[in-house]
Amino acid sequence: MTTGPGSKKTAQSPTPKKSAVTVKWARRLEVGREVLRNPLTVIGLTIIFLFLMMAVFAPLLAEPNQPDPYQSPRDWSNIDSPPGVAGHVLGTDSTGGDVLYGIIWGSRLSLQLSVTVVLFTLVFGTMVGSIAAMRGGRIDNLLMRIVDVFLSIPELIFALAIAAVLGPSFSNIILALAAVFWVKYARIIRGEIIKVKQADYVAAARVVGDSSWNIYRKDVLPNAATPLIVQATLDMGNVVLIGATLSFIGLAQAGLTEWGALVSAGQSGLLAGEWWVSTFAGLAIVLWALAFNLVGDGLRDVLDPKTEGR
C-alpha cells in the first residue's frame, strides 16, 4: 500500500536524530513565528519588553530612594516644576517627587501587581472551572452559582469594596483584584472543557482505559487552555488599569510610586496648568494596557482553534 502526499515530504526531511521534544518545540516555535507576523503584536511585545527592562534595571535608571525605594525622593526646593527643570526630566509633583522616578519604580509595582494577580487568578480559576466541568452535576451547579454571584457585581465596584474594607495598602489592592478576577477564568475554562469533553479523542482515551487525571492533563486541558492564555494576556493590562483606579481613589499607601497614585497626585495641579504629572503617569498606564491588549489580540488570531489546523 503506497502512502499519500506524506511520502514526498519524508524524502526532504531527514528523519533520524529527531526526538519528540524537538518536534514539539519546533511546533511551538512555528506558532511563535506566526504570532510575530503581525506588526501590531510586535509593537505590543516591544513596549512590554521596554517596560520589563525598566522594571529590572530600575536601580540603574534611577538611584533607589532610602529607606523605601517605592517612595519618590522629595526635592522640596522644586515643587511642581515643569519637565526639564533642575534635572527633573518629566518634572515633579506637588510634594517635590520626581515623576520619572515614579514611573520607573512604578513599573516594578505594576509588574508585581499584574503577575501576582493574573498567576493566582489563572491557577485558581482554572481549578474551580475544571472541577466544575469534569465532575459535573451538583458540584458544577454549586460552583457555577457562586461564580454567577461574583459575576453579577461589577469588577471595579467589587474590588473597591474589598479594598476599602481591608484598608488602604498596595497589597490589599492585589488581594482585592485577585478575589475578583478568578471568576472569569473559571467560567471560560468550564465552557471550554465541556466542549472539549465531547471530542472523540477524549472518548478514545477512555476506551484505551487511561485515568481521568491523565485524560484531563493530556487531552482536555491542553485543548481547552488557549482562550485562557489569551484572556490572561489581556488581563495583564486590565489588572493594572483597575489597580491604578483603586490607588487613584486613594486605596494605596500615600506617596507610593504607583502610576494610579501618581495620576491622582497630579490631578489637583491639572487646573493650574500643571499637566505633566497626570499626563505622564496616565500615559504609562495606557501604554501598558495597550501593549498587552495588542499581544492578546495577536495571540487570539493565531491560537483561535477556528483558524488553527488549516
Binding site: V23, A199, D200, Y201, V208, G309
Partner: peptide, 26 residues
C-alpha cells in the same frame, strides 16, 4: 473503538507516537 471522524478522534496536540503508543503506556 475506531471513531467516525478521524479529525476529532486524534488529539491535535499529541504526536502520532503518543497517540498510538498511549494504550501501551497505560
Amino acid at each position: 473503538v475506531v471513531f467516525q471522524d478521524a479529525f476529532s478522534s486524534l488529539n491535535p496536540r499529541q504526536l502520532v507516537r503518543d497517540i498510538v503508543g498511549r494504550p501501551l503506556r497505560v
